[in-house]
Write a protein that binds this DNA or RNA. Structure first.
Lengths: 276, 276
DNA sequence: AATATCATTCCAACCAATGAAAGATGTCTG
DNA sequence: CAGACATCTTTCATTGGTTGGAATGATATT
């Protein structure tokens, strides 16, 4: 069991909820209340979920609104503002890679007409940076801005395989979260898979829910040779075979990597083995 | 904000730091330092531009980093974090419209292979929400997350034409900012143009810088019939004539509007009193 | 009309925020 | 290789921004 350093001996429940917490943390906890299912919230909802009295929440929110981090709707509810979105668009790992990758993703999308995903790793999850989908594409589990587990998605495996050794070990030691629709992988197999991903530059995952799909992902490298993002394509199971998709996905990923300043090393492995 | 009265006896030697400013405002002013040209900043740069002592900046930044609003690079510089980007992706006017519009934008892009833009209005400017471009497209002035003037861009004109009367008047009264490469429009002509935009659902602008282009834009309506965004296509001057592009742009914009719940008003000649 | 819920204003106690000063670290320069 | 310079970080006594219960106003529900 993890132990948080408790300076206070008594729980002190009820009387002092979150007193003493830095103001910024409180303000940020207000932002954190927003989620996919909670995009427009009232003052009391925000106060309740952030765990602070309404007057306090109101005061903080007023500052956030004044700056543009939040916006107030006609009905009095609050939503995340364009100004915040604007600043966030300067995030190198957010819009940064996206900006460079988008034209290439489009080419891949145009050719295949299937979901094309771009993701980066944030701590122990993958964050979906971009998703191109046609209007009539198969259902897909994740939305842009959402998070996906590392161990049970194709982009996740790529990002995990590309993470530093220390992080990988820590992740492998943790008990896996069970993702519905994805077959669980025991540790041994997972290790082998990650090794394969590093060698081949391709990860593959089959899902049965929310719909039967196959995902094929490939890593994107920066100039330092680190894996900064993962690109994948999601197709209905039984349509285009994965081994046909793999070259296209890998080629696209490499094109993006090159644009990020990555000088593809001529790997003896790839050169001699005609399989590619 | 306004300058605080100097009636106090302690002038503090002209150097009047932002003493007394709410903490949140200070934290937000740190975020505001980031811009297109300033995506990675050192502590002292942040402190200087935000107008606060280094220790104060450091303390605030530490909280922002802890939450994920900022991230620290290996070289010690700070950048906008993925977490902030994640929350910002819940912005209805940011990623919200984008999410719905993207598939349609893609269709338009795929057919034309020219820049396709999506923008919303934030106060007196247009904010670029999305831009689809091919790798070898003509140079375009604005990037995603950037701002563009209302009076001298096609999307801007559409957004201005769709704004409430009061705002329009206030904007028309203000002295126009001169945008390089765009022919200035006197007030009378601008009024006529806005009226035309409302009637036809199309705005058009010719630019000579940074490259010779023609932009054609059309409004996107929400369920309440308000103009929530503008969609445009930017083509090299002399290629496809604007009157050929207009129907495609308008059709795409209407498709997005319909998806937002907008019930396109039936034109008078078709309207019958079938329902009462 | 009564009740319940939410939003807003007020204010005195209080504690988190402040920033000068100094130390720690790294980087040029002569 | 000192010495000058710049940046980053920690410390700490002071203080002014922050706090949240209570009261009031605004709406919605029964």
């Amino acid at each position: 069991m993890t132990v948080t350093p408790d300076t206070d001996s008594t729980p002190a429940r009820g009387k002092r909820p979150k007193q003493g917490e830095p103001v910024i943390d409180r303000a940020l906890s207000l932002l954190a209340v927003f989620s996919d299912r909670r995009r427009a919230l009232t003052l009391s909802e925000l106060a309740r979920h952030a765990g602070m009295p309404a007057p306090t929440a109101l005061r903080l929110i007023a500052r956030l609104v004044a700056w543009g981090a939040l916006e107030r709707l006609d009905d009095g509810r609050y939503v995340v503002g364009v100004r915040l979105w604007e600043v966030a668009s300067l995030s190198p790992r957010g819009h940064g890679v996206r900006e460079i990758a988008l034209p290439y993703l489009e080419d891949l999308f145009e050719v295949t007409r299937h979901h094309v995903l771009l993701a980066v790793r944030d701590n122990e999850e993958a964050v979906l940076i971009e998703r191109l989908s046609s209007k009539d594409a198969t259902e897909v589990a994740y939305r842009v801005g959402g998070r996906a587990p590392l161990r049970s998605t194709a982009v996740g495996l790529v990002l995990l395989a590309g993470a530093d050794q220390q992080f990988q070990e820590a992740t492998l030691r943790k008990p896996p979260e069970h993702e519905p629709g994805v077959e669980h992988m025991p540790e041994g197999q997972l290790r082998r898979t990650l090794s394969d991903v590093r060698r081949t530059g391709i990860a593959m995952i089959r899902r049965s829910a929310p719909s039967k799909t196959v995902s094929v992902a490939s890593p994107i490298f920066d100039a330092q040779g680190s894996v900064v993002a993962a690109l994948s394509i999601v197709v209905p199971d039984g349509s285009t075979p994965p081994n046909v998709l793999a070259p296209a996905v890998r080629a696209t990923a490499r094109a993006v990597s090159r644009n990020l300043g990555y000088l593809a090393e001529v790997s003896p492995d790839v050169r001699t083995h005609s399989e590619g």
